[in-house]
Nucleic acid binder design. Structure first.
Lengths: 196, 196
DNA sequence: CACATCTTGAACTGATTAGTTCAAGATGGG
DNA sequence: CCCATCTTGAACTAATCAGTTCAAGATGTG
């Protein structure tokens, strides 16, 4: 079996991403990646690069895929900021509820490992987190919040979103996660009401 | 140098705990532990047990030490629930601000790694998280919150507390962490006000 | 002083790690 | 039909991993 391509790059990258997502960088060996993708060690090396390079590609893939969804969720923020934030959390809650996908969040998990990651990977992770904050800040500013409230809530919502990753890894139920989110949504609702 | 004890067990356990805390279970080798504690490989093995056993001891040590502080912070919850929760968060924020200690939280970090931890360690981590929830629930119920509100806020506060661990690992500033906590404290304040 | 006790450093085992190389084979294009 | 292209499996290197063993040395006790 050779001549041309043979394997689907997107499928292979998805499999690698999910492996890193489930087990983390440190607990993923090249053998694990080989098993997950169905690709030979040498195929991974020649087609996807070494472990560090592949991890960066998976991180970018993850950030792009869910970044789009987060953006779409927040798109109605100018007219309906509360609905937008609810939709934002629903992206995460839906992902956690999907039995095909690991619990947690690849970015949050990588953030926890920053002290032991290579500088280039660590920088990528921090950039992804910064982008998430930026996304939220812009959406909330477009809503009816003051600039200061928008910044504070952007930090808070981003943090609570990451807390869902931790909780879900420890086996929290959908109801528990909903309780966590509910307080934040109510607080935002309150902040919006006092502005009227 | 022999005959009797030679090294201080508490100092050694603290050093091991901090090593696990900083680098995580997977990224901590016995050599790392040997370097951190100043103890020989064989001394670690004979005095502190194997890697799994030692990690469990460090986890318990961590849970006991900060569990006490969280309890003390929440002790005034019956009369001053808002002050209690503020003090609760201050335990975490103070720990993060301490330059002698790693960022993050050993429990939160271990929770993220649950899928790749041994069952006994994973059970320990989940027990620690459950205990934290229980602590908060009891404190808030003793305060002026309804049972339902107490449970919802207990979940939320526990989650936000863990989000501080993630954020601090990614280099969040004290001001950013304060913003995250502020929204939660305000929400609690609001819930208490509507009860009056 | 002498003996029992404990620590220590070093070495070793067997497994696993990431990374790399290469000959053999399968395939498609010309 | 044949050759260039690509994949594949296997093997190899050098490093690291956890775990274990043990002789040598230092110490406190009797």
């Amino acid at each position: 079996m050779a001549g041309k391509k043979q394997f689907d790059m997107d499928t292979a990258l998805d499999a690698a991403m999910i492996q890193f997502w489930r087990a983390g960088y440190a607990d993923t060996s090249l053998d694990d990646l080989s098993r997950a993708t169905g690709l030979n060690r040498s195929s991974i090396y020649s087609s996807l690069g070494d472990k560090d390079t592949l991890f960066l590609r998976c991180l970018d893939r993850y950030a792009a895929r869910y970044g789009e969804k987060y953006d779409a969720a927040l798109s109605c923020a100018a007219s309906e900021p509360l609905t937008a934030v609810r939709a934002f959390f629903d992206v995460t809650l839906g992902r956690i509820a999907d039995p095909e996908l690991p619990d947690g969040c690849l970015v949050a998990q990588s953030a926890m490992a920053i002290p032991v990651l290579s500088p280039s990977v660590a920088a990528h992770v921090e950039k992804a987190l910064g982008f998430q904050r930026l996304r939220l800040r812009a959406a909330l500013k477009a809503g009816r919040l003051t600039d200061q409230d928008a910044e504070v809530f952007a930090e808070h919502v981003a943090a609570v979103n990451q807390s869902l990753a931790v909780m879900s890894r420890a086996g929290a139920s959908p109801a528990q996660l909903q309780a966590v989110v509910g307080v934040t949504v109510n607080a935002l609702s309150q902040a919006l009401r006092t502005r009227d």
